[in-house]
Design a protein around this nucleic acid. Structure first.
Length: 485
RNA sequence: CGGGGCGUAGCGUAGCCUGGUAUCGCGCCUGCUUUGGGAGCAGGAGGUCGCCGGUUCAAAUCCGGCCGCCCCGACCA
């Protein structure tokens, strides 16, 4: 009986585990439209906290939010050749409006570079108008063939930042600045270790000069691209005539960047931290940090326990370090059933509160990550909860980082060994690359692994690889290879 | 788009081969007893068996067509 309530284990079938977890923990559900999803309150609550954290960080750097339309004239997409070539296969196009065939079809935005830089061109005249730093939170549509909840859906939520700068250096600096913000968000908020670096030419954004990305390792040892930051150079400025007058009086095209993080991050969170019991949400992203489960028999106990529970919620929500508390007062469930329920949903801390505890003025505090239980005097609960939440946040990060490192491979490596790793348990393989498209393509063809990033210095191996893992010629760069989502 | 699987109550399923109007579990409703790791008992509600057509006295079951979804391979946040 209890068996059909359990999740498929990660080891038995990682994909099935993921789907069951997302559905059972009520993060999301399938929609009537193939490839689309409904994000339920549990999932949206996490997304809202992600939004808030990132939004604050963007704004600290001077970025302002705005909103650009969902519909983009089809002709705009065609103004940047590589951009349209990259996105054409996955466009949704509106051809009829109000019952009439439109003169010009409207593309449902797959991303907004074209319309945003067209608008920037109207707004920017002089170097004094730069930099222009804009972000929007919106949905985007890409007609995908194979979809998975959160990881790839035809419509997804994200933020897309778009900036314009006076010099190439400023554009590059902005691209790197945002990549750093993404990294900080993923490490400090999502407790998700990432490797940052540059994308190879074949993997970069359609229309970009350079693409940088954060790559996390999921528990099946596959890579998940969790955020990208593009240096667009002057490609779009030239396509949309985004020019400005320089201080010296000349005219120059602006330098653009764009960068985005999507609801895919929620899927990354699940695959980074989930276990066979359910979800584990890092405290800083958890809509509820602590759930109080009241235990009682007699009616007078019920009133007493609930009264203390609500007092706890009220007390913890105040003060210098407020804790987000929920009291689970459902009458039709036993305490044990509630424990399973909240563990499935990933709430970081649980306080079990019964008559025996009240006698001792304590509660039983249970960590979701380690499932460790211990009695805590109610008088110290506020401090203990805050400290424990911080410890959970910290431990979740180090646990994820340690397992990432345990499945990362560095040092001299043969192609045979490379294939053995990729075909076996998988992981991140750091290896030399000659820099040619040919070797990259052959490796992808033969192993399904791709270059996730050319790692930034802090992620490079102490001893730079000397030769290309495929052709044996001199390596021009170190590449991090993995199978990816 | 190729390969595989599946559509039966809100969810998960049995029945299909060998036609006779649907099984079981979870959930839901009512009542009582319960409540420290997935409560028990009793009663109850809930179904155009994905859709269309055919065969037949009779179709969830056999035949044909269609639709949808999920999973696995080529593109991608």
């Amino acid at each position: 009986m209890a068996d059909d309530q359990k999740l498929t284990t990660r080891e038995a079938d990682f994909g099935a585990w993921y789907n069951e977890l997302v559905l059972k923990s009520e993060l999301a559900d399938y929609s009537p439209v193939r490839g689309c999803m409904v994000i339920r309150p549990n999932g949206y609550g996490i997304w809202e906290r992600m939004q808030r954290a990132m939004d604050d960080m963007f704004k600290e750097t001077g970025v302002q939010n705005a909103y650009f339309p969902l519909f983009i004239p089809e002709s705009y997409l065609h103004k940047e050749a590589r951009h349209v070539a990259g996105f054409a296969p996955e466009l949704a196009v509106v051809t009829i409006g109000g019952g009439k065939v439109l003169e010009e079809p409207l593309v449902v935005r797959p991303t907004s570079e074209t319309i945003i830089y067209a608008m920037f061109a109207k707004w920017v005249q002089s170097y004094r108008d730069l930099p222009l730093l804009i972000n929007q939170w919106c949905n985007a549509v890409r007609w995908e063939m194979r979809t998975r909840l959160f990881l790839r859906t035809m419509e997804f939520l994200w933020q897309e930042g778009h900036t314009a700068h006076a010099t190439a250096e400023e554009g590059e600096a902005e691209t790197r600045l945002i990549l750093g913000i993404y990294r900080r968000f993923m490490e400090e908020w999502a407790a998700m270790p990432v490797v940052t670096g540059r994308k190879s030419e074949s993997e970069k954004f359609a229309g970009a000069l350079r693409t940088y990305a954060c790559e996390g390792m999921m528990q099946d040892n596959k890579a998940l691209q969790a955020g990208t930051s593009h240096n667009l150079g002057q490609n779009f400025a030239k396509a949309f005539d985004l020019k400005f007058q320089t201080e010296a009086g000349g005219t120059e095209f602006a330098w653009n960047t764009s960068w985005g993080v999507s609801t895919r991050m929620v899927g990354g969170l699940v695959m980074t931290h989930g276990d066979d019991i359910g979800l584990r949400v890092p405290p800083k992203l958890a809509p509820t940090e602590l759930v109080v489960v009241p235990i009682y028999r007699a009616e007078e106990q019920r009133a007493q326990v609930l009264s203390v529970a609500h007092q706890i919620r009220s007390d913890l929500s105040k003060g210098a370090s407020p804790v987000r508390v929920h009291v689970d007062a459902r009458e039709n469930m036993t305490p044990g059933a509630k424990y399973y329920d909240w563990e499935l949903r990933g709430v970081p801390l649980r306080l079990e509160l019964g008559p025996r505890d009240l006698e001792k003025a304590q509660g039983i505090l249970v960590r979701r990550d380690s499932r460790e239980k211990r009695p805590v005097p109610l008088a110290e609960l506020s401090r203990t909860a805050t400290e424990t939440l911080a410890a959970i946040q910290h431990d979740m990060y180090t646990t994820a980082r340690d397992r990432r490192d345990a499945h990362s491979y560095r040092g001299p490596i043969t192609y045979a060994r490379f294939r053995e790793i990729i075909d076996g348990d998988g992981g991140f393989v750091y290896a030399g690359w000659c820099g040619t498209d040919a070797c990259e393509a052959v490796i992808k063809e033969e192993t399904k692994a791709t270059i996730r990033v050319l790692p930034d210095p802090e992620f490079q191996s102490p001893d730079a690889p000397r030769t290309c893992v495929k052709c044996g010629n001199d390596a021009t760069v170190e590449a991090m290879w993995a199978k990816a989502y």
